[in-house]
Computed example of a mutant assay.
Amino acid sequence: MTTTRARALALGSAMMLAAACLTGGGTATAGVDQMPQATNRTCTQATSPAARGLRLAWNDEFGGESLDKRSWSTVMDFPGRAGGHYHNTSYGSYAVDENVVLSNGRLRLIAKDEPVVGTDPAGTYQYTEGFISSHDKFFQAGGYWEICAKFPAGKGLWPAFWLIPQDRSWPPEIDVAEWFGSIEGMHSGLASGNWPDVRWDSHWSYGAAPTQGWHKYGVLWSPGRLTIYTDGIPTYTVTGPQVPDKPMYVVLNSGTWANADRGGPPDETTVFPNAFEVDYVRVYR
């Protein structure tokens, strides 16, 4: 999501797009395209196996009429962003508060193709997005982090659930569920090391399942170990000293891809407005 992150992603994009990619200490066990289809409209009912025995530390069920500003900020505050409402040139979208909508007990982070003149940073942007983060509001090291969500379908869409450090360093970064709509690819994994020597432990899976129903996406984080879960099933594990031990916080955003790789930006086939829908965020300690 940062400028440095986008550059690091580009280094290995061709190899990662060919198949599920494993590097370093990572082990893949299943893909999003292999996960069971959700039978309920949402996935709020059952506690995920990875959370059992842990204590709920922080959550938002999005039951209010507006975003709880005690838990969330709509301004970006991390390395590599060009301003408080724009990530960097890998994105085509500018974050605006009106694209963060709560309705019927759900968060809707909306992407629109209505150009906007932004001030932070100044410029004209072709698309708008919804962005929220728990920076300075909630952060912890370790535990189990989970959302229940439905991703939008469409070329050039780039919504994600990710974690970055409270101390504004980068890397590390934990990508729990990062959706590239152009290629119907879900990326999960860990960025570690120091720029420009960034190490990526990544897993890719493919298929339209994330857009066709509600699914749980989570990460169980313990000393020296990260395991990514989809619908309670472990899909990928990273082990080793590269696993971070510093407190991190939640980022949820919609948005659009701007570059020519990974299937390219939106085109005339992309339906706007669209939404990255989230039923809940729950973090266990």
Rank of each mutant, 00 (worst) to 15 (best):
residue 78 F to D: 01
residue 144 Y to M: 04
residue 159 P to E: 03
residue 69 K to Y: 12
residue 125 Y to M: 02
residue 101 V to Y: 00
residue 53 G to W: 08
residue 80 G to N: 04
residue 101 V to S: 02
residue 72 W to S: 00
residue 104 N to W: 06
residue 146 E to M: 04
residue 98 E to G: 09
residue 112 K to E: 14
residue 68 D to E: 09
residue 118 G to N: 03
residue 141 A to Q: 07
residue 156 G to C: 00
residue 111 A to G: 12
residue 137 K to D: 11
residue 142 G to M: 09
residue 135 H to D: 11
residue 140 Q to F: 12
residue 86 Y to I: 05
residue 71 S to D: 12
residue 110 I to G: 01
residue 85 H to E: 11
residue 75 V to C: 07
residue 107 L to I: 09
residue 171 P to W: 09
residue 124 T to Y: 00
residue 140 Q to R: 14
residue 117 V to H: 05
residue 144 Y to D: 03
residue 82 A to N: 05
residue 95 A to H: 01
residue 69 K to C: 09
residue 172 P to R: 05
residue 91 Y to V: 05
residue 82 A to S: 14
residue 141 A to W: 02
residue 86 Y to F: 15
residue 78 F to V: 10
residue 173 E to C: 09
residue 76 M to N: 04
residue 66 S to D: 11
residue 65 E to I: 10
residue 148 C to Q: 04
residue 78 F to W: 12
residue 138 F to D: 00
residue 87 H to I: 13
residue 125 Y to T: 08
residue 127 Y to Q: 06
residue 119 T to Q: 13
residue 129 E to D: 14
residue 140 Q to M: 07
residue 78 F to Q: 11
residue 169 S to C: 12
residue 111 A to V: 15
residue 159 P to K: 01
residue 153 A to M: 14
residue 130 G to F: 03
residue 149 A to V: 04
residue 66 S to C: 08
residue 141 A to P: 11
residue 153 A to S: 15
residue 153 A to G: 14
residue 163 L to Q: 06
residue 75 V to H: 12
residue 60 D to C: 09
residue 65 E to P: 07
residue 135 H to G: 09
residue 127 Y to C: 10
residue 96 V to P: 05
residue 127 Y to R: 14
residue 133 S to F: 02
residue 159 P to D: 01
residue 59 N to W: 10
residue 125 Y to K: 05
residue 106 R to N: 13
residue 130 G to D: 03
residue 136 D to F: 08
residue 100 V to S: 00
residue 90 S to M: 10
residue 83 G to P: 06
residue 153 A to H: 14
residue 107 L to W: 01
residue 97 D to K: 11
residue 173 E to K: 10
residue 101 V to H: 00
residue 144 Y to R: 01
residue 160 A to T: 06
residue 75 V to L: 13
residue 140 Q to T: 13
residue 170 W to R: 06
residue 55 R to M: 12
residue 91 Y to G: 08
residue 92 G to Y: 01
residue 59 N to V: 06
residue 106 R to M: 14
residue 93 S to C: 08
residue 65 E to W: 10
residue 106 R to S: 14
residue 69 K to Q: 13
residue 52 R to F: 08
residue 76 M to V: 08
residue 159 P to A: 00
residue 115 P to M: 05
residue 62 F to I: 11
residue 60 D to L: 11
residue 69 K to G: 09
residue 122 A to H: 12
residue 111 A to E: 10
residue 54 L to T: 07
residue 93 S to A: 15
residue 69 K to W: 09
residue 80 G to I: 11
residue 110 I to L: 05
residue 94 Y to M: 04
residue 172 P to M: 11
residue 106 R to Y: 02
residue 146 E to Q: 12
residue 162 W to S: 02
residue 100 V to E: 00
residue 127 Y to F: 15
residue 141 A to K: 13
residue 139 F to Y: 14
residue 170 W to Y: 15
residue 143 G to P: 08
residue 141 A to M: 05
residue 116 V to C: 04
